[in-house]
Simulated assay, not measured.
Amino acid sequence: MEKLLRCRTIAFLLGITMFYTGCSEEEEDENPTINNNADAAIQTALNNGTSLEEILDSNSKTKLYGKTYEGGYIAYINESNRLVLICAAVDIADQVAFSDGGNFSLSASTSSNAGQGQSNTDKIIGELGSTGNVAALCNSFSTGGFSDWFLPSKTELGYFRSNVFKKELGNFPGGQTNAKYYWHSTIISCPEATQFVTGTQTCVSSANVRAARYSFY
């Protein structure tokens, strides 16, 4: 009984930065009501302007995944360099080719790592141009007061899938059973896309586009 009462305590001061669940992550996972209340408290704190740094002082970064923030959903946080990866709230294109020019070879190397999507996007635009390709489409995208979007790297797109889509968030067409392929900016032998239901990586002729942006705290 003492454990249950302790775990049911959800205390937070909105707009001031304090919120406390009073139980471990394992105990929260055993009780959906506690988990939902804690999630709501964190989202409310973000909405009220509480900084990520203050929230992370008393919560693991995974508690912020899927929360709405700065034009989209938090998909990943790197606490070493304080980078926040944000997944746009909606697709910006449906079933489009990677480039209007068809098949192409990219001379510049692109990275699969998190934190490299912007660099990859710049390289693709440098070779394919500022229009007519999905990197340029992301680069010109603007929503929620932000215009610094890019085509995510392979790993970043994976975070979209695991930390937003798998939580049934993000307005992904097709949902958990019929979700689409999505382009990423990591090009090896050909432009690849990730199938969001299975996680399969493959070269395809068309796919959807979901943009990313970075924030720092």
Rank of each mutant, 00 (worst) to 15 (best):
T177E: 13
V209D: 02
R210C: 02
V134C: 01
A75Q: 11
K167Q: 07
V84K: 12
E168W: 13
D57I: 05
K180I: 01
E168D: 10
I42H: 00
A75G: 08
N37K: 10
V96Y: 07
L85V: 08
V204Q: 01
A179W: 15
S111C: 03
G22Y: 05
C23E: 06
K167I: 00
F172I: 13
S105L: 13
G71P: 02
E30M: 13
N35F: 14
L5F: 14
A41E: 04
S189F: 09
S107G: 12
A11L: 14
T202M: 03
W183K: 09
Q176H: 03
L4N: 12
T68Q: 15
S105Y: 14
L151K: 06
T155V: 08
L85R: 01
N78S: 05
Y65F: 12
Q95K: 15
D39R: 13
I74E: 00
G145Y: 08
T131F: 14
G174E: 06
K167R: 01
L5A: 07
L4D: 09
N208R: 01
K167M: 02
N37M: 12
A75N: 05
T155H: 04
G174T: 01
C190K: 01
S215M: 07
D57F: 14
L106F: 12
G72M: 07
I16W: 15
T200Q: 06
T186Y: 06
F104R: 11
E54F: 10
T186H: 05
G199F: 11
C138T: 00
A211L: 04
L64M: 10
N178W: 00
A108Y: 14
G174R: 04
Y73W: 10
E168K: 14
K154C: 05
R210I: 02
S142A: 14
A93I: 00
N35Y: 15
S153C: 04
M1E: 09
N47R: 04
N35I: 07
S58M: 07
T33Y: 14
P191K: 05
A75F: 07
S130V: 05
F165N: 03
A97P: 13
A114Y: 15
S215G: 10
S80F: 15
T121K: 00
N208Y: 10
K180V: 01
P152K: 10
I74M: 00
T50A: 11
N178Y: 12
T68H: 10
F160H: 02
G174P: 10
S162P: 01
S80H: 11
A38V: 03
N113F: 13
K123I: 14
V197Y: 04
F12L: 02
T110R: 00
M1L: 15
H184I: 09
E54G: 06
S99N: 09
A41M: 11
I10V: 11
T143D: 03
G144A: 01
